[in-house]
C-alpha cells in the first residue's frame, strides 16, 4: 500500500473537529480522489499525510514509512502540490524549480536536465526565465505541479489542483494529470470539490463529509450501486412532503426531497415519468420540470450524504 491512513482524528481549537476517524487505503499506481465540499476535511487529510500537521490520534503510513516515526523519509518520498504552492513570485520559474530540486538533494546535471524536462512537459519553456509574478493562473498551477515532481516522488499529493482555473486551463490540467498517472508509476492522491474532476481522473474515490469517509469505490461501481436511472422533478410550488412521498412511492423508489426538488430512482426512468407526473397532479403538487439521467456521481453523493453536492459546496 502506498498510503494507509487509519482512524485519523484532528481537532483544531476551539474544538472544531476537522477529521473524525478518517481511514483510506491507496494502492501503488492508483489515482485516488477525496471528494467533498469545503470544510469536509480533505485539506486537513493532505496536511497530515504530507507531515505538515500532526493527527491527534490514528496511524498512517505513506510510501511504506510510518508518518509519526519517520516523517523525514515520508518527505523524501512525496511530492506536494498544496492549494497555495508558494512559488516565489520574484524568482523565475526555472529558479523556483532549481531551488526545489536542491532542497531534495538533486544536483548538478541531473537537476538541470530534470528541470528542463519539466519546463517542456508543462509548457513553460517559453516563460522559464521570467519572474513568476507575471504568470497567468494556469501557468502558475502548472509550475506548482512541476515543483511537486522535481525529485521524482513516489506519491504525489494534489490538493484542489484545478481550483480557480478557467475552463480551458482546467481541461489542460486534467490532461496533464491523466498523463502523469499513466507514466512514472506515480501514486496520486487528489482532492477536489468538482464531481466531474473526480469522475474523470480517479481510479477510486472516497466521498468525505464532516471528517469521515462515507463511501469508497470506483466512480462506476458507486454509480452502479444505485441500480437504475435518476428521475429529478422540480415542483412548481411548495410541497407537502409526506403526501408527495405517498403519491409517487408506488411508481419509483429511493425518494429524497431537497427543497422543491425531489429525486428518485427507477429501473427505466423514461417509462416511469408519466406515472410520476400523474401522481403529483393528483397530490396537488404539479411538476415544473422533469429530467431523467443515467446515475451520476452527484446522485451517489446525494444518496450517501443526504443532500445535493452543489449545496454542500455553497455551505
Amino acid at each position: 500500500m502506498h498510503v494507509e491512513a487509519h482512524d485519523l482524528v484532528k481537532t483544531y481549537p476551539p474544538g472544531v473537529r476537522a477529521l473524525d476517524g478518517l481511514s483510506i487505503t491507496i494502492e501503488p499506481g492508483e489515482v485516488f480522489g477525496l471528494l467533498g465540499p469545503n470544510g469536509a476535511g480533505k485539506s486537513t487529510t493532505v496536511k497530515i499525510l504530507t507531515t505538515l500537521a500532526r493527527a491527534d490520534s490514528g496511524t498512517a503510513s505513506v510510501a511504506g514509512h510510518d508518518l509519526a516515526r519517520h516523517p523525514d523519509r515520508v518527505r523524501r518520498a512525496i511530492g506536494v502540490v498544496a492549494q497555495n504552492s508558494g512559488a516565489d513570485p520574484l524568482a523565475t520559474a526555472r529558479d523556483n524549480l532549481l531551488l526545489q530540486g536542491r532542497l531534495y538533494g538533486v544536483r548538478g546535471r541531473d537537476l538541470r536536465t530534470r528541470v528542463g524536462e519539466l519546463l517542456d512537459r508543462f509548457d513553460l519553456a517559453g516563460a522559464a526565465d521570467r519572474p513568476v509574478k507575471g504568470f497567468s493562473g494556469g501557468m502558475r498551477r502548472r509550475l506548482d505541479v512541476a515543483l511537486g515532481l522535481v525529485h521524482r516522488p513516489v506519491v504525489l499529493f494534489l490538493d484542489e489542483p484545478t481550483n480557480g482555473l478557467d475552463p480551458e486551463a482546467r481541461s489542460a490540467m486534467w490532461a496533464e494529470i491523466s498523463r502523469l498517472a499513466g507514466s512514472e508509476g506515480l501514486t496520486i492522491l487528489l482532492t477536489t470539490h468538482y464531481l466531474e474532476e473526480a469522475d474523470r481522473l480517479t481510479d477510486r474515490l472516497a466521498i468525505v463529509d464532516e471528517g469521515k469517509v462515507l463511501v469508497t469505490g470506483t466512480a462506476d461501481a458507486l454509480k452502479g450501486s444505485l441500480r437504475g436511472d435518476a428521475v429529478h422533478v422540480e415542483l412548481s410550488g411548495d410541497l407537502d412532503e409526506a403526501l408527495v412521498r405517498q403519491a409517487i412511492g408506488a411508481v419509483v423508489r429511493d425518494v429524497t426531497v431537497d427543497g422543491r426538488v425531489l429525486s428518485a430512482r427507477a429501473d427505466d426512468g423514461a417509462a416511469a415519468v408519466p406515472g410520476v407526473l400523474a401522481a403529483l397532479d393528483r397530490a396537488g403538487s404539479p411538476a415544473a420540470a422533469v429530467t431523467v439521467a443515467r446515475p451520476s456521481l452527484d446522485d451517489v453523493y446525494l444518496r450517501h450524504v443526504g443532500r445535493r453536492f452543489a449545496e454542500g459546496v455553497a455551505r
Binding site: L52, A82, Q83, G86, L103
Partner: peptide
C-alpha cells in the same frame, strides 16, 4: 507573506 503564499508549507513538507 511566506506563510500566506504557501512557501513556508512547501519547505516544511520537503526534507528541509
Amino acid at each position: 507573506d511566506e506563510i500566506e503564499r504557501g512557501t513556508l508549507d512547501r519547505f516544511l513538507t520537503a526534507p528541509v
